[in-house]
């Protein structure tokens, strides 16, 4: 459903992505792992239309998207849950979630989708009138995920959902990602938590210095010597 074909991207004069090609298929969890500064966030920002690749092609659901604005890409059914949550701090939880249903395609059904999100994160129902900035870190991540799901996406890009969270809540987040897959939503997951990510993902790509250096089934990658040394500390 998502095809990235030989893209290159720059920050000013510095090349951040080198000849990246990857695929995400229906109802599949694909992980992108790599160290800090490898270019993971740059890559997903390019996919979701916040940055423009200088060359190469990005296709989503058979449609070329690398020249579209990000709001048009959301309309097509790609949702990006950004790193660091990026909530609207002085808006209520409910308003934050409603913003997720901003696109025309889903605005009419926002009450129904809202109920589904509340069922997925019951704590948010209890806190719906509270301002987003008054929530705990874990709850804020739930709002960010919920907001991303409000657009009823076919593909969900989740950038570092475990960032800054307690281990028990990280566990919960991974549980939810698994249940999204079973609902038929494809997930492109960016993580530094390599062990857990590889356990949940079907396939994974490893990014280093702006280049994809490895790809394969997660089960195989866990066995890979290089991964063990560099990311799992074994």
């Amino acid at each position: 459903m998502l095809h990235v074909n030989h893209i290159n991207a720059f920050y000013g004069k510095i090349q951040a992505l080198w000849d990246i090609s990857l695929n995400v298929h229906e109802a599949e969890v694909v992980a992108l792992v790599g160290a800090n500064g490898a270019g993971k966030t740059t890559l997903v920002n390019t996919i979701s239309g916040l940055l423009r690749p200088t060359s190469g092609l990005i296709e989503f659901l058979g449609k070329r998207v690398d020249d579209l604005k990000s709001h048009s890409i959301v309309e097509l059914g790609m949702s990006h849950i950004p790193e660091g949550r990026m909530l609207f701090p002085n808006m209520s939880v409910r308003e934050n979630l409603e913003m997720g249903a901003y696109t025309k395609r889903v605005w009419k059904n926002k009450h129904k989708t809202l109920e589904q999100v509340y069922d997925l994160f019951p704590v948010l129902r209890a806190r719906q009138r509270q301002l987003a900035r008054t929530l705990s870190g874990g709850e804020q991540q739930m709002v960010a995920m919920g907001r991303g799901l409000m657009s009823n996406p076919k593909l969900c890009i989740i950038d570092e959902p475990s960032c800054g969270l307690a281990p028990i809540i990280v566990q919960e987040m991974f549980g939810i990602i698994g249940s999204l897959r079973s609902q038929g939503i494809a997930i492109f997951l960016i993580e530094q938590n390599v062990q857990q990510t590889l356990e949940i993902a079907n396939r994974a790509y490893v990014l280093e210095n702006g280049r994809l250096i490895l790809e394969g089934n997660s089960q195989d990658l866990i066995q890979e010597e290089m991964i063990k040394k560099a990311y799992l500390g074994l």
Binding site: H71, H80, I81, P82, M86, F88, M99, Y102, S151
Partner: peptide, 24 residues
Amino acid sequence: SKYGLALRSIGQEEDAAAHTGVNV
């Protein structure tokens, strides 16, 4: 309106507004 909600979201976190599909 929905438009007013979008305006406020721009004031608070413009990048996130773009992420959610607002033509900022």
